[in-house]
Computed example of a mutant assay.
Amino acid sequence: MKTWLLAALASTACAFPALGQDARSGCSLPKPSAAAKVLLLSAYEGDALSATTIGSQDIAIRTASIDVEAGSEPLYVVALSYKPMIWRLSGAVERVERIVLASQSTEANGSRPDARPIVGASGIAADKVAFLPRPACLEDFSEVPSAEAARTIGVVKQQTGKNPIVAAAYAVSGITIPSAALKPPSSGADVRPSIAIENDGKGFRIDLNGKPRTEEAGNALENDVMRFYPGGVVEIDTGTVVASGEPARYEVLPGKAGLLQLVRSGALSRNEKGELVIKTKIRFPAGLYGGESARFILPRGVPAPAGDPGHSCVVKEEAGDTSTDPDADC
């Protein structure tokens, strides 16, 4: 049985109740052991982009690391995020007796109160992972002290019977536990790693882990990739991911990274206005919302792309009209 399905069945304490029940019903945390130290980790998003998706090619997944320090005391971890996330565990992972995962996001660009959050973890056995069933179960936070933090800490303390050790950030690169030390943010805007794109026979992959260089004028899309994902694009083996949906490799990377990937492959070209001209049949990258949206030109005779354009504007040359989300700026 696949790890994601095993994980979804692993915790009866967090079983998904029928729709229409009270928003907090079924949200009880599994009980920690008497010896366990409880940790509460929270972030709006990871600062790196995952090359593995959860459940859909149209959902952009972020990622951050959890490094477990050596020691004998068992650890009980509650990990929260706003955006869809894969937490990557490494180090003395055998110390983790349970990790409880939650996210506010249940779809590509939003949250439904009756839907399952999109979240996962890698590097840990499925029987140690539990999922909270709905976004309302626990509220993420990125600052302590704050009202959101106080509410969530109070719920965790009440349900586990222990004061949690807390670590939080807006865009997290990594967290070391149990010391709750935040990994320093990735490089600033002045110096970034170079970008390489490789074709491994399965598809193109962007690697930001190259020799640092100063940003150069004229590389707007490359610089956007570095700005939106300062932690880079992280390859995660789908077979190691325990998630609330089935893990899969992206056909096209999300957001700005996917746009750069398609430009580098020749499937898109950029005109002088920065518009993206579609040259052949493509899939829109996931997550083209807000600042990651784009303006596409679909020439006559070119097949319409698969996937979700998000907030992006798509100008169909043949019809002379636009196909866009109502929030797009066309």
Rank of each mutant, 00 (worst) to 15 (best):
L80N: 04
E107M: 10
L75W: 09
E94H: 03
S105L: 06
V119A: 00
A121I: 11
R112D: 13
S122P: 00
A79V: 12
I59N: 07
V77H: 08
S90L: 09
S103G: 12
Q104K: 08
A115L: 14
S72N: 11
P113A: 11
S81M: 12
G91L: 07
I86G: 04
T63A: 10
V100T: 04
S90P: 08
S122W: 00
I124N: 03
Q104S: 15
S90I: 01
A102N: 14
E97L: 15
R98P: 08
P117C: 03
Y76H: 10
R116E: 05
A70M: 05
A70G: 09
D67A: 13
A121N: 04
Y76I: 09
P117M: 08
I99M: 09
A92I: 03
E94R: 09
A64Q: 02
R116P: 01
W87Y: 15
E97H: 14
I66S: 12
Y82N: 13
G120P: 06
V77W: 04
Q57T: 13
G71P: 09
P117I: 01
D114H: 11
I118N: 00
A125D: 12
A70S: 12
R116D: 02
S103I: 06
S90A: 14
A108M: 11
I86M: 02
V119M: 00
R116H: 04
A121L: 12
S122T: 07
S111K: 06
A64D: 10
T63N: 05
R62H: 13
L101C: 05
D67F: 02
A108T: 14
I86Y: 07
L101G: 02
G91I: 10
R116A: 10
V100C: 09
I99N: 00
R98W: 07
E73D: 02
A108N: 03
S103C: 15
L80E: 07
I86E: 01
E107Y: 10
S72L: 11
R112N: 04
G71F: 06
V77R: 01
L89A: 15
A115S: 15
S72Y: 09
L89V: 10
I124G: 01
L80I: 13
S65R: 13
E73V: 12
L75T: 10
I59H: 13
P84M: 03
T63K: 10
S72T: 15
I59D: 07
G91R: 06
E69M: 07
A79P: 14
A70N: 08
A92R: 09
G71V: 06
G123E: 04
A79Q: 11
E94D: 08
K83C: 12
V77Q: 06
L89G: 04
D114T: 08
D58L: 02
S122R: 00
A102W: 03
E94K: 12
L101D: 04
I99C: 02
I99P: 00
I66P: 05
L75I: 14
V68R: 00
S65F: 03
